[in-house]
């Protein structure tokens, strides 16, 4: 009952606030981000933000807002696309913005509504469109922010914007939190609040009852995830993972061959962890092998 109320009230407030992105922390962004754990994928929807162009060519912007949704496939979370949904208002010109450019890739935006013109003393065009960014590109920019550009077709310069680093971190943090809740709760969405101590009520959780774990607060999210999944895979998979992890501990040389779901989660979280953590994780894994 409480769950339903929480979720309904979250969705009601979803688009009501458009934050000032430059003074918002990643924690605040993570709090405003919505999550939807679906059948095949986990969908993360960031809050709407007001954007100011870092440079303008082709039109003068009066207002710009966007929000980003990403979908992490459960089987191969590293491959997915994020979608930027944008609303743009600018002093009227006769050419609409039709192209986007991000990370050197240029493509056509998809219009969500017919462009409208509103005239008074000043005439404005309003466009609503969306375009994709590979999730890997988005996540790779989580410390620096990701610039993107909106252009008129055929033009070389357009409106430049930047997705703030804190916004991307907010998306990632929300996703990691959902994974935690999902796994710890044994497949149920426990609640959107920080997870209480896990209760082994299902068969899945029961098999890990014999595993040894240190206190959760000592580890980062990646390490916690790795511990959790390591305890769930077969001994053969544990060995295979340690083999792969040793070879890739300094730098990820390539994607691991896909295996069972647990094995894929291990390789995914290992990729997410930073280099200093990886050695610690490998040591821990060797100590805790079945």
């Amino acid at each position: 009952m409480l769950k339903k109320i929480l979720i309904v009230s979250l969705s009601a407030s979803l688009m009501a606030c458009a934050a000032n992105p430059n003074s918002t922390s990643s924690e605040e962004f993570a709090k405003e981000t919505q999550i939807d754990i679906g059948y095949n994928a986990v969908r993360v929807q960031g809050t709407k933000v007001q954007a100011k162009p870092t440079s303008e060519a082709g039109a003068k912007v009066t207002a710009a807002q966007y929000y980003i949704t990403t979908s992490f496939s459960k089987t191969s979370p590293a491959e997915s696309d994020a979608i930027v949904h944008m609303e743009l208002s600018y002093f009227q010109t006769t050419s609409e913005f039709e192209d986007y450019r991000v990370d050197g890739i240029r493509g056509k935006v998809t219009a969500q509504k017919v462009t409208s013109q509103m005239c008074n003393d000043n005439c404005m065009n309003n466009q609503w469109f969306e375009f994709p960014i590979p999730t890997a590109t988005l996540v790779a920019a989580k410390d620096t922010g990701l610039p993107f550009e909106i252009l008129v077709s055929g033009a070389e310069k357009g409106l430049e914007f930047e997705v703030p680093a804190a916004y991307i971190q907010g998306l990632v943090k929300r996703y990691q939190k959902a994974q935690q809740d999902y796994n710890v709760g044994g497949g149920e969405i426990a609640s959107s609040a920080p997870a209480a101590a896990p209760v082994a009520t299902t068969a899945v959780a029961a098999t890990s009852a014999g595993a040894i774990t240190r206190a959760n607060s000592d580890f980062s999210t990646e390490a916690q995830m790795l511990q959790h999944w390591f305890n769930k895979v077969t001994p053969a998979e544990q060995e295979a993972f340690i083999d792969w992890a040793l070879k890739n501990r300094k730098a990820i040389k390539g994607q691991a061959k896909p295996g069972s779901k647990g094995y894929d989660m291990l390789t995914y979280w290992f990729t997410e962890a930073n280099v200093s953590e990886r050695s610690e994780i490998i040591s821990w894994a060797v100590e805790n092998m079945k």
Binding site: K4, I7, V8, L14, D36, I37, G38, G187, I189
Partner: peptide, 11 residues
């Protein structure tokens, strides 16, 4: 099982 129906619809 998954109480996702309401969430999915709202989102």
């Amino acid at each position: 099982m998954f109480k996702k129906t309401l969430v999915a619809a709202a989102l």
